[in-house]
Design a protein around this nucleic acid. Structure first.
Lengths: 222, 222
DNA sequence: GACAGAATAAAACTTATGTTTTAATTAGAT
DNA sequence: ATCTAATTAAAACATAAGTTTTATTCTGTC
């Protein structure tokens, strides 16, 4: 019976894996509400009933999708790179911002979880609590540490929170607002889609703002 | 016949106006897709068929709602206040940011159009082109002028664009990300909802970043 | 007071979508 | 080779939402 079970599982994984793959793609594109079970199954080459059979329902499929692609994304973009103590805080902020943008803007499946996360920001589902605790909070804590160090001299927690939020807000804007930005600057030289230029700007803008905070603090103390 | 017509119009406006009011509220709360005709009519105390009778369909009702509440919002928050030439660029940026946040975060109907605009950023409808041209572009142009003046010395258009975008991005983040921020900092002292503290932070962060850009430019020239 | 047209209301219709049922098929064990 | 359990497929079902139809009520005019 046990052997049978494993062998059967392999067969099941074929369809199950194809659905998880298609679900990652479709949920990333359209969000939870916008995605349809029919579209996921169509792309997976599976029958509609397969979602019920392998995952119970759309909601559970979504949770499984979050879990699965979270693992994939964090293998590709390990956050500890931005925590590398041998680098300066400024370098670490650069790495963080570049990685944070890549997570959401890259082509292909490595960015699916980042896109799911971006969707949760603006269209929260029941999965938000898990996403916050397992993905957003760790990243935000990492970012806060970098910001705290950049300001120096044990700044107030609220200052750190707000500056970190400004960094995240700028990044997310470039992910969400692409249709608007594309219309504002329809000429070809629009920055939309040029991840490197976007990253370079956010890094510079944020570093300047945070360092100014540090300088003022020093000035106050003199 | 003409007299009859005006009198009839008054009667029609009763229901029509109530629907327009309810539509502003519901579309602002839930966005175009999330809003339902049934809910709008329920709140308006009108029959479902009234939408078809007075506005043809949901899409046209939405366009009318945009048009109507756009006028209301710009009466309440005239953008020219942030263009007042007698004020310093820094003051004008403060006014712009405060107004921009108020447009979206205020209680009541004066913020409905701002919320509709915020929805268009993340869930574009066919109305986006109109919203961009009639509401977003004028504001962005105003903001760009302030930023250009803050940097000084005729900065590259792309620099102005990017810095302006950073300002807008920070503002919008605080509107969208409230569920996430509320979970990140569940303790009472969360900044969510404290519009004034949010505004003060964004003003400071942005002014510091933009002024740093100005200083470097000056430094380059020496 | 009766009539015409506008406005409202009730109900049905249509489509999209998640879910479930039931039948057919497939794979492995004996 | 046959049987059992797992898997897949087809179809039906249920619900929600936009739209439309039809009947009723209301308003102002003659």
């Amino acid at each position: 019976m046990t052997d049978v079970y494993t062998t059967e599982k392999v067969v099941a994984l074929d369809t199950r894996a194809r659905i998880l793959d298609a679900a990652g793609r479709v949920f990333a594109e359209s969000g939870y509400r916008g995605a349809t079970v029919r579209e996921i199954c169509r792309r997976a080459g599976a029958n509609i009933a397969a979602v019920n059979y392998h995952f119970r329902d759309k909601r559970s499929l979504y949770f499984e999708t979050l879990r699965y692609w979270h693992a994939v994304a964090f293998r590709k973009y390990p956050p500890h790179v931005a925590a590398d103590g041998s680098r300066s805080p400024g370098e670490r902020l650069s790495i963080f911002i570049t990685q944070f943008l890549s997570r959401m803007l890259d082509e292909g499946e490595s960015s699916w979880f980042g896109k799911l996360m971006a969707w949760e920001y603006i269209e929260a589902t029941e999965g938000l609590d898990i996403v916050v605790e397992e993905a957003i909070r760790p990243l935000f804590t990492l970012l806060s540490g970098i910001v705290r160090e950049l300001i120096g001299d044990d700044p107030p927690a609220e200052t750190v929170r707000l500056c970190s939020t400004s960094v995240v807000g700028q990044c997310l804007y470039f992910v969400y607002a692409r249709p608007v930005v594309a219309r504002l600057f329809p000429d070809g030289d629009s920055i939309v889609g040029d991840k490197d230029r976007i990253a370079a700007h956010i890094i510079r803008f944020s570093l300047d703002a945070i360092r100014a905070r540090a300088e003022v603090k020093g000035g106050d103390q003199l």
